[in-house]
């Protein structure tokens, strides 16, 4: 056991954690408690006074078919984004692992998209796929595909999923490459000698041994798809057409800042917070246990 560090000064330990505590207090607990308070109140249209209404906001939100729609959209969007981002990253990482010359250069190139801001990433994809000006949109129409994400909700969803995944692939790629490097080469060789061809080796040896990495990325990607994709959705579809790509986070923004129904918006934020806490807890409790090997 490492010896415990003992500070002679009683105040010093508190001072050392103070910056972290201050940041958490100001940027998490304070707004979170504000949201909690607001979610129990109703604001008048002019923002002059608010009135305590108990759980009425929550009842209203949960009974709203638009909210249920946003929930469905979020689930589809998150599952699709996490899956696509991880699957493509894994494929690229496995291929990159085979590259012998220029490994570093190749990897560096792969990491660049992560440096692109969400809104910019959204704009890039919009320029490529916008039905009126998009380069790829023209190509697709020439191929006979009726491409119009401004009217077709499924196509709009595919577009935001593609854009959101594209941005996250770099991050996942890095972790998968590291994960692959951590697998001893002799294991792969032993499997080859044991008569397993490449595909079989991947699914029976490599993939199971990557499980800790995959689990970690699953948590990160789900959280990313839930919360960090606002910029992309805002730039690409603005939640439309109709409400086909309106995720929970996007709806919080829409109701709160566009429609100015602060009570509803706050109630939705609180629900979101509960969802994330629950999701993370479930993932750590049930999935993580099965994925670690010594």
């Amino acid at each position: 056991m490492t010896p415990r560090v003992v500070f002679p000064n009683k105040l010093l330990p508190y001072l050392l954690v103070a910056p972290q505590l201050a940041i958490t207090l100001i940027f998490f607990y304070w707004p979170a408690s504000q949201a909690l308070q607001q979610s129990l109140q109703r604001e008048d249209p002019f923002g002059l006074k608010s009135q305590f209404v108990g759980l009425a906001n929550f009842r209203k939100v949960l009974a709203d078919p638009n909210y249920i729609n946003a929930l469905q959209v979020t689930v589809i969007f998150s599952v699709a984004t996490a899956f696509v981002a991880m699957a493509v990253a894994l494929l690229l990482a496995v291929q990159a692992d085979k590259v012998v010359r220029g490994k570093g250069f190749y990897r560096t190139l792969m990491i660049w998209p992560y440096a692109v801001a969400p809104a910019i990433a959204g704009m890039l994809w919009l320029f490529l796929f916008s039905p009126s000006i998009g380069t790829f949109a023209v190509l697709m129409r020439n191929l006979g595909i009726a491409w119009d994400p401004l009217l077709n909700g499924n196509q709009a969803m595919a577009l935001v999923v593609a854009a959101a995944s594209w941005k996250q692939i770099s991050y996942n790629f890095l972790f998968f490459v590291a994960g692959l490097q951590a697998i001893p080469k002799s294991l792969i060789e032993a499997a080859a000698i044991d008569g397993a061809r490449e595909t079989k080796r991947f699914w029976t040896i490599v993939f199971p041994l990557l499980a800790p990495t995959t689990f970690f990325l699953l948590v990160i990607n789900t959280t990313y798809a839930f919360f960090d994709t606002f910029g992309i959705i805002h730039a690409v579809t603005g939640g439309g057409p109709g409400k086909a790509t309106e995720t929970l986070v996007y709806k919080v923004y829409n109701d709160g800042f566009v429609n100015l129904v602060l009570g509803d918006s706050a109630a939705q934020s609180v629900i979101l917070m509960v969802i994330v806490i629950a999701l993370t807890a479930v993932q750590f409790r049930y999935v993580e246990r099965k994925v670690h090997y010594g």
Binding site: P184, S186, L187, A190, I193, G195, Y293
Partner: peptide, 20 residues
């Protein structure tokens, strides 16, 4: 002929057992 078809068995220095 690759290692898969060579019909050999190998014991590695670090044993290379499948940990899962």
């Amino acid at each position: 002929i690759g290692p898969t078809e060579r019909d050999i068995a190998m014991v590695f220095q670090n044993y290379a057992l499948y940990p899962h």
